[in-house]
Design a protein around this nucleic acid. Structure first.
Lengths: 130, 130
DNA sequence: TACATAGTGTTATATTATAACAATTTAAAT
DNA sequence: ATTTAAATTGTTATAATATAACACTATGTA
């Protein structure tokens, strides 16, 4: 069930970069960092990002247009994500709370609509910035 | 406490447009629609949008780069927002669930961090599209 | 009145993201 | 092994989203 996904060359280069980064990376910053490895065009970056997001290896922080590696072994696929974002230093942390994900996965709105995916972004001040 | 905010001319024009729209509006679509009213430049739109978001009259749907009017009388300020988004027709609805907002407002992560704001986007299929 | 704050108008530019096309690689199925 | 489909790549051009910088005007309030 833990179907290991083999990454293509560009995907691997870009994943490695994001994975090593202590903070979310933006697409054009990624581009600058991989130009020495032969990835020259924005589209090459965006295509790899799309795929990596699709298979859950990275997540997009929508409010920041930036990408971080998934460190939550339980999300093979990126369908239930939660992050905390510090409004001063911009540090982003993926939240893995079983109770939170359970609550949101089971959430039904008043029409009884259930959702297949969600993305939650919390904002506040991190320990260091408080 | 319900301090009525007076909108400036541009803010009012742009709010009225978004408020009448049945769907979230994008910045440049707003721009096209208000050019006849004398708003000619993107920056004029973005400045009004920023302010309207800040005072909670509209919300930004981050995953769509689009804006909708707030129809939730309890959010004077845009600090706790939740939306459902149909992945087919792109219909967006603001969720106002007391239990959801209570749960999220009180949520503490494992470091005990509390958050001052959050934004939640649910994805799925709406009634019509199912 | 004077002062600070918020808003406006404008030009230019930065940032983020996709379209369209041709070629190549990979995986799988015969 | 050969064919075929799907995924990936490389490339140029361009679309879509958003902000910087500057000068000026309106508004609220002390």
């Amino acid at each position: 069930m833990d179907k290991m996904q083999t990454l293509s060359k560009n995907q691997q280069i870009i994943f490695d970069l994001i994975d090593k980064s202590p903070e979310p990376m933006k697409a054009y910053s990624i581009l600058h960092n991989v130009q020495k490895k032969g990835i020259k065009a924005p589209l090459q970056v965006y295509r790899a990002l799309d795929k990596l997001v699709k298979i859950g290896k990275i997540h997009k922080i929508e409010s920041r247009n930036a990408f971080i590696a998934c460190h939550n072994s339980s999300c093979q696929v990126s369908k239930a994500t939660a992050f905390s974002i510090c409004e001063i230093c911009e540090k982003v942390t993926e939240i893995s709370s079983a109770s939170l994900s359970k609550y949101l996965t089971n959430f039904k709105d008043k029409d009884g609509m259930k959702y297949s995916k969600y993305n939650l972004e919390f904002f506040g001040l991190c320990k260091k910035c408080r």
